[in-house]
């Protein structure tokens, strides 16, 4: 009988231990609009399109910056909402990144203050409507980067890494700019990686319904 009482007590304490559950929910209240206009359709990569395939021109360290940028954005998610990979053939890519002009001077990435010695632009493809009314992109995303002879080689490298990460943010579906200058998705970014606001914004984006399907040869009429 005593053994039985002890067993019951052990079971009870085990269940009580299980009942002490107190996880705290994170605060994601600070975010910005990811659409250019609130009436615009939403785009994010669907789970079925992951990993998103990025192709980078083999110019200078661009492939390295793209790999860094993709990893940075992946790390903003906890539940596998976005994954990317580099591909070696642009024909296989969902996103193509190119660097205009010659290769920039070789310089290591540093923690130096940001210098605006590069620029970038992401071309969001046009959409078409399928028979079902579903919107689909008719082309791949294209990102064009450009560097200027301003600052040291490391300033140029830092700028290209930063702006590449920013443009990759646009290809995730963050088509708007953050109104906060500290954010990576600010119009002229100085941050080297996504901030808590950038993180909350992409997390929210990837938990709302996407209205547009990514480009796929199989979806479009011949």
């Amino acid at each position: 009988m005593q053994t039985r009482s002890r067993s019951v007590a052990a079971l009870a304490s085990l269940l009580l231990l299980g009942a002490c559950d107190s996880p705290n929910a994170p605060d994601r209240s600070s975010f910005y609009e990811f659409r250019l206009s609130p009436s615009d359709p939403v785009f994010h990569w669907p789970a079925t399109a992951l990993p998103v395939r990025f192709y980078a021109d083999q110019v200078g360290a661009l492939p390295e910056y793209v790999a860094l940028g993709v990893r940075m954005w992946e790390r903003q998610f906890l539940y596998g909402e976005f994954r990317g990979e580099l591909v070696s053939d642009s024909a296989d890519a969902d996103v193509i990144l190119s660097l205009q002009g010659s290769a920039p001077p070789d310089g290591p990435l540093t923690d130096d203050p940001p210098v605006t010695s590069c620029t970038g632009v992401t071309s969001v493809p046009p959409t078409t409507e399928l028979g079902s009314g579903q919107l689909v992109y008719t082309e791949r995303f294209q990102v064009q980067l450009q560097w200027f002879s301003r600052g040291s080689p490391s300033d140029i490298a830092n700028c290209l890494a930063r702006v590449t990460a920013h443009e990759i943010g646009h290809t995730l579906g963050v088509f708007n700019h953050s109104p906060t200058p500290d954010d990576l998705m600010a119009r002229s970014p100085t941050a080297r990686e996504p901030t808590a606001r950038d993180r909350a914004t992409v997390q929210i984006l990837y938990h709302v319904r996407s209205d547009i399907l990514p480009f796929s040869h199989g979806l479009l009429p011949p």
Binding site: G18, A19, C20, S22, A25
Partner: peptide, 10 residues
């Protein structure tokens, strides 16, 4: 992320 408490898993 700010999910600071442990969760009980059965």
């Amino acid at each position: 992320e700010g999910i600071t408490g442990d969760r009980s898993v059965h």
